[in-house]
Design a protein around this nucleic acid. Structure first.
Length: 563
RNA sequence: GUCCUCGUAGUCCAACGGACAGGACACAGCCCUCCGAAGGCUGGGGUACAGGUUCAAUUCCUGUCGAGGACACCA
């Protein structure tokens, strides 16, 4: 990574820690450091004078990375990467291809994501966790971590009590229930429970029966679970998401008792209002319920068991929970408890909190039946892509089968990208037009840029671009803009993983595409004036295509050779 | 009530404490005798408010106002 090399070189020269960043204005160089400003304050000296001093030290290092160092503004030191350095990076991209930007980080990361609840259709609400989680997975794997994905399915708990209660009430225990029917039952339960306070208790009683092994309850539960899992498979296939493990909550049922015993034995459990709770003496955290007053478990019990299992099985350095922000407090309690139990420092857990898809009025509520079904969204996206294909000059002529492939990649890509472009932490207003946007800051924009680049490469008859020379004597501005951006990919990827921010990668891809499109529009490649220029532009085109592909691949979005 | 997020152009989003706050949508104008116009170029407009820390604040701290969320037997 250029950034690291440069940083080492500078720090060696000046004997100080220096932070490097990319100036917003390209006239300020490729990297910049404000170390002189910081030192000036510390030493109470003139920042420009310090900068002069540092620059002369840096120049004596004679690094090949940069060929110009300048002092600008109040005392920034700006570095301009050398043509050699930029070109070397270009060749690295073409040589390493899909591996460009990889690292060999040590450690194991478990990522808990997606986690839909059975007996409910997959709503847009679970979309965020699924795709953000998948990208976090991709990023960590790419950087060399041993990465384990775990789909913590919500297949246990009082919600099934509710379902069982309603099924019994309506006398539906014999038949096969579809996912839609299951959802309707759940909605009806909540509607009716508003007027009937005994229902909640009835639901708890049914869950208790389920947990105690009641045969009928188990049978109904199992059927509902199978139906749901089949439905999830369908969605994951559409989204092209594969999660290593699907260990639902019910998986931990056998060890729940031991976990509860351990918590009690370590003196952390306390009886309160009939329930067993865990208190947090050192924190301003409210207590968490370990066992309900009817001795049935709840999600806290099961999440503790999950932690115990994961620590033992995978010995992870980090467990990431890609879960909605509304669970922040709860997860804090959970992590604290794991630490109080002596299982692991709470720093080994991290909650990647995402905001919700919301309507303009507020939050979607499954209970009120306002769920937007993800499948409908995806279908709609694909349909919309199909319409655009029919209007497109190029895609219109594709064979029917390929059109379908394109429609799917474009539609699904658009939905995913709409989410991934944004920082996970904020809410996303659910807006069909924006979500299915096929232009601007979007996946189709990137896919289109990629397809055009590939088209040029196909026409060039150049199986392998030559990159043995440093290109033409003088680069055009548009060429430089691309060249001076591509090398950042490795640091962007590392940063995105570190900050759990897929949007950095998405943002990178958009900017790269924008720069390439400007280049594409202004400068001919195949009809370049000189052969040398043509070779260089092909090399550039090839590298951009490679990086777009790498970025989209990390984001879980398909690239297309033609569209 | 307590705690946690968050307030950036008409709308949706960016910006490790750094140099004139970026992009997309929408709007107006321009560019296909030339590699794919799902593209490019040009234009107008923005940091909720008040203090503080700092050489430097959209970013950190305090307060006000506004939005959302969480706070015991749902997950």
């Amino acid at each position: 990574m250029i950034q690291e090399e440069l940083k080492k070189t500078i720090e060696k020269a000046i004997g100080e820690r220096a932070v490097l960043e990319h100036p917003a204005n390209p006239e300020h160089g490729d990297y910049s450091t404000s170390v002189a400003l910081v030192l000036a304050t510390k030493l109470d000296k003139n920042p420009r004078a310090i900068a002069e001093e540092l620059v002369s030290k840096i120049r004596s290092e004679k690094s090949k990375l940069f060929d110009r160092v300048e002092i600008a503004g109040p005392g920034f030191i700006n570095f301009f990467l050398s043509r050699e350095c930029l070109f070397n990076e270009l060749t690295s991209i073409l040589r390493e291809k899909e591996k460009y930007g990889r690292r060999k980080m040590k450690g194991t990361v478990v990522i808990d994501y997606s986690g839909p609840n059975i007996a409910k259709p997959f709503g847009v609400g679970h979309l965020r966790s699924t795709i953000i989680g998948q990208v976090l997975y991709n990023l960590h794997a790419f950087l060399g971590y041993k990465t384990i994905g775990d789909n913590h399915i919500g297949d246990w708990g009082t919600q099934f009590g509710k379902l069982l209660y309603q099924i019994k009430k309506e006398g539906l225990e014999k038949g096969d229930l579809s996912i839609q029917q299951l959802e309707e039952l759940y909605v009806r339960f909540h509607q009716e429970a508003e007027h009937d306070e005994t229902m909640e208790e009835g639901a708890r009683a049914w869950f208790k029966k389920l947990e105690d092994g009641d045969t009928e309850a188990r049978q109904i539960w199992k059927k509902a679970r199978d139906t749901s899992l089949k439905e999830f498979e369908h969605i994951y296939k559409l989204l092209e998401v594969k999660i290593d493990n699907t260990l639902g909550e019910s998986f931990y049922e056998p060890i729940l008792k031991n976990v509860v015993e351990e918590v009690k034995k370590k003196g952390l459990a306390k009886k309160s209002r009939g329930a067993w709770i865990v208190e947090f003496p050192n924190e301003e955290l409210p207590p968490a319920i370990l066992l309900k007053s009817d001795e049935a478990t709840n999600y806290f019990t099961r999440d503790l068991a999950t932690i115990q299992y994961r620590l033992k099985k995978w010995k992870p350095n980090l467990i990431l929970y890609e879960v909605g922000a509304e669970q922040s407090l709860y997860l804090k309690q959970l992590f604290w408890t794991a630490e109080l139990l002596g299982w692991a420092k709470r720093e080994r857990f991290h909650h990647v909190a995402h905001g919700l898809y919301r309507t303009k009025e507020g939050k979607f509520s499954t209970r009120k039946g306002q769920t937007v079904h993800l499948e409908e969204v995806l279908e709609d996206a694909i349909n919309r892509a199909r319409e655009i294909i029919e209007q497109s000059e190029t895609a219109r002529g594709l064979p029917t089968e390929e059109k379908e492939t394109v429609a799917k990649a474009v539609g699904i890509g658009a939905v995913k990208f709409n989410d991934l472009l944004q920082n996970p932490s904020g809410d996303i207003v659910f807006d069909w037009d924006k979500m299915l946007n096929l232009k601007g800051n979007s996946a189709p924009y990137l896919q289109y840029t990629y397809a055009r680049a590939k088209s040029i490469l196909r026409k060039s008859n150049l199986a392998r671009p030559s990159y043995s020379h440093l290109g033409p004597a003088k680069f055009e501005k548009e060429e430089m803009d691309v060249l001076r951006y591509m090398y950042r990919f490795p640091e962007i990827v590392a940063e995105a993983a570190k900050l759990f921010s897929p949007n950095l990668v998405a943002q990178f891809a958009v900017e790269l595409a924008q720069k390439y499109n400007a280049f594409y529009n202004k400068l001919p490649v195949l009809q370049a004036e000189t052969e040398e220029q043509k070779q260089f532009r092909l090399t550039l085109t090839s590298s951009v295509a490679q990086l777009l592909q790498n970025s989209l691949h990390l984001l879980g979005i398909e690239t297309l050779e033609r569209m």
